[in-house]
Amino acid sequence: MTVKPSWLRVKAPQWERVGSVKEILRDLGLNTVCEEASCPNIGECFSAGTATFLIMGPACTRACPYCDIDFEKKPKALDPTEPLRLAEAVKRLNLNHVVITSVNRDDLPDGGANQFVQCITEVRSISPKTTIEVLIPDLCGNWDALAIILEAKPEVLNHNTETIPRLYRRVRPQGDYQRSLLLLHQTRTIAPWVYTKSGIMVGLGETDSEVRQVMQDLRSVDCDILTIGQYLQPSQKHLGVQDFITPELFASWQFYGEKIGFLQVVSSPLTRSSYHAEQVQELMTRYPRNITY
């Protein structure tokens, strides 16, 4: 068994607060990526009363060997009550910023775009001051579906590139690196006011120069925000960790990212794509963009 270095240790959560968040999620029949993807920050986030909601799941139509979300179950028909239940959870948790993500639903013509829209609409109705971030799949390159999501005007559009191009076939076999970059480019074209965001995980065998090239590629499509975190193996059946990246190297990537023009770079061993996502509100104050609802 691989021994994790000291910098990957997490603080024990406040289980009373964790339990109250879980109780709300169970009461409303909602899934979170925190639980489904075995996120190491679940204790901290739940203790703080935050969660990243996983819609249209928990079964996924893709089988990425790094991900702990179930792909063996058959995806179910979309639940029309899910958006309202999600909005109620946002209200009960009193969230200032909410992240809504989904499994891949390649079985749906729009990839689930309209379900995202309904979730955004319901949250806006019940919690109009809550800022909304959507972490979306690649929609199989369906830019009409992307436009549908952007018409609902989330403040942040997040799509993870996940890894370097050389490792895509092994890490993300049903994904396409160029398609992910194009999605972010299309987002900027369709909705220039939105804050675009992407994330990669490291420790799968990439080199420092390859990580920096991905950062340059993301800036070439005017991506605003970048997250970089350590990949951790969810189980023995998943891809193994090749390297534990030091905090110093993470810090150097943050410095480089800010140097080449990202508005925000969150880079540390425990960073995940929605970890401390609420910090985007500070960014929106410093770099305001005009958006009319």
Rank of each mutant, 00 (worst) to 15 (best):
V21Y: 02
A147K: 15
A191I: 00
G19Q: 12
C34D: 14
V103F: 10
A77P: 14
C34V: 00
R92I: 01
S252R: 08
F46C: 09
I69D: 02
I126E: 11
T163H: 04
R179N: 14
Q216S: 08
R272S: 01
L249A: 00
A113F: 11
R219S: 02
L25F: 09
C39F: 07
L232N: 01
S220C: 03
D68K: 13
N160G: 12
A37Q: 04
L232R: 10
I42L: 14
D106Y: 06
S252Q: 13
L28Q: 03
C119H: 13
A51W: 05
M201V: 01
E23A: 15
P128Q: 13
E248S: 09
I164K: 01
T207W: 08
G229M: 10
R166I: 02
T285K: 14
G205H: 11
K197P: 11
N94H: 14
D138T: 09
L54M: 15
A87C: 13
K91G: 11
D27W: 02
V98P: 06
N94R: 15
V21M: 02
I126A: 10
M56P: 10
R62N: 14
S252L: 06
F262M: 09
V33L: 00
L204Y: 07
I69F: 09
Q178L: 11
C140K: 15
M215G: 04
R92T: 00
Y293R: 12
F53E: 10
Y195G: 00
R179A: 13
P192N: 09
L30G: 01
L226V: 04
T196K: 08
E155F: 02
I100P: 04
L84A: 15
L25N: 08
W7Q: 08
I260Y: 13
L30K: 05
N41Y: 09
E44K: 09
F262G: 04
L239E: 07
A147P: 00
H276M: 04
I120C: 02
F244W: 06
T292K: 14
Q115M: 09
V99R: 00
Q118H: 13
Q174V: 00
W15E: 14
C140G: 07
N114Q: 13
L249V: 09
K22V: 13
T285Q: 14
T81L: 14
W143T: 13
L135T: 12
Q230V: 01
R124E: 08
N290C: 03
N104E: 13
I55L: 15
V280A: 06
Q115E: 10
V134D: 01
G57F: 12
P269W: 07
S252G: 00
S38W: 12
V18N: 01
K11F: 07
Q115V: 03
I148K: 12
L232K: 02
S38T: 11
F46A: 11
E278R: 12
S274F: 03
M201E: 03
Y177H: 04
I225P: 01
D27M: 05
V202W: 04
P5R: 00
Q236I: 06
S102R: 02
D106N: 08
D68G: 11
V194D: 04
F116A: 03
V171R: 05
G43N: 03
Y177Q: 02
Y66I: 15
V90C: 00
L30R: 04
E248P: 04
P13T: 02
F255G: 00
W193E: 14
D208C: 07
K237Q: 14
H159G: 06
E248H: 05
G111N: 05
